[in-house]
Design a protein around this nucleic acid. Structure first.
Length: 315
RNA sequence: AAACGUAUGUUCAUGCU
């Protein structure tokens, strides 16, 4: 069995998943049961690589073996159904695992709650939080942040705020991810001011301003045309050693082109390249839109050509 | 033998609405 696992492992690590699965499936004719961890890692790789047919083949074979699945196994199954957008099956996994003697934990519930939120079933998601408490589990930062984000996606910002206070009342410290979801929610409603109020709250609670938060705020000010404020944010990022990424520059480029300032937009593109950040399809989209807006169709076409040359696929 | 090793939340572009 050691040789067997080494063989499958080698294939896995070389990214030859089809081969790994082939070997795995020969188990039927061999007289041993592989370890659960080993199977779980194979499932995880198949999920990551989007090889869903292989995933289910392996899972079916696992079901035929003398294995008792653990929470990791079921997490993989949940992710598999989630990938297919099948929320009903996701919920069923929760019941099934209970029947099979594997009690769902906080992570399992969080995954289900996340998928309910994604499907827009917020009431069910909240209900799910209630039942996890009934099971003696304690909702954590992920649980609350997921719900905050769920409400934000539905534009129910007041409800989102309530969850945030609930989290705080539960004794959890102010969570940067939850705050970011809320800020993003307000920004998408055009309410930059409210977003900055949340930022100030973060500062007063000593919550780290990370790259994601700064990009969120930058998105707000750039969309609002507040480019002086945008420069301030970037300066603050550099001072606090939060390295801008390609999204940061994409947002700046977008902000400037919306103001018909292609000179500064191109300056941002240069600065981005100087920091050895590769332009993405978003970068080129912004540049092309800007050039189109200023009626530079030739340059727009040239930018498109350059994008192709960089090996970026137009979508 | 033990330990280690596998699962969960947030940010960017175009058009139509």
């Amino acid at each position: 069995s050691v040789v067997f696992e080494m063989l499958v492992d080698s294939y896995r690590k070389m990214g030859l998943l089809a081969e790994a699965v082939d070997v795995f499936l020969t188990i039927k004719y061999v007289e041993f049961v592989p370890t659960l961890l080993f199977c779980n890692m194979l499932l995880r790789d198949l999920l990551k690589a989007n090889k869903m047919e292989l995933f289910w083949k392996v899972f079916d074979r696992m079901s035929d073996m003398e294995l008792t699945f653990d929470v990791y196994t079921y997490s993989n199954v949940i992710n598999a159904y989630a990938k297919a957008g099948n929320v009903d099956e996701v919920k069923k996994v929760l019941l099934e695992m209970g029947e099979n003697g594997c009690a769902p934990n906080v992570v399992t519930y969080n995954m289900v709650i996340h998928n309910l939120c994604r499907a827009g079933h917020l009431d069910e998601a909240v209900e799910m939080k209630r039942s996890m408490i009934e099971q003696g589990l304690v909702p954590d930062n992920y649980t609350y942040s997921t719900l905050v984000n769920g409400y934000c996606m539905e534009r129910r910002l007041e409800d989102a705020k309530l969850v945030l206070s609930e989290m705080f009342d539960a004794g959890l410290k102010l969570d940067g991810v939850a705050c970011n979801s809320l800020m993003d929610g307000f920004i998408k409603q055009g309410n930059v001011e409210e977003a900055f109020k949340i930022k100030n709250k973060m500062v007063s609670h000593f919550v780290q301003m990370d790259l994601v938060v700064q990009n969120t705020l930058l998105n707000g000010v750039c969309k609002a045309g507040m480019m002086e404020k945008a420069r301030e944010i970037v300066t603050e990022m550099i001072e606090t050693d939060t390295k801008p990424d390609s999204r940061t520059y994409n947002l700046l480029i977008e902000g400037y082109y919306r103001k018909h300032d292609m000179v500064r937009a191109f300056q941002m593109l240069d600065e981005m390249k100087k920091r050895s950040l590769a332009p993405t399809i978003y970068t080129y989209s912004a540049i092309i839109n800007g050039l189109y807006l200023s009626r530079n169709f030739g340059q727009a076409r040239a930018a498109f050509g350059e994008m192709i040359k960089q090996g970026l696929e137009p979508n």
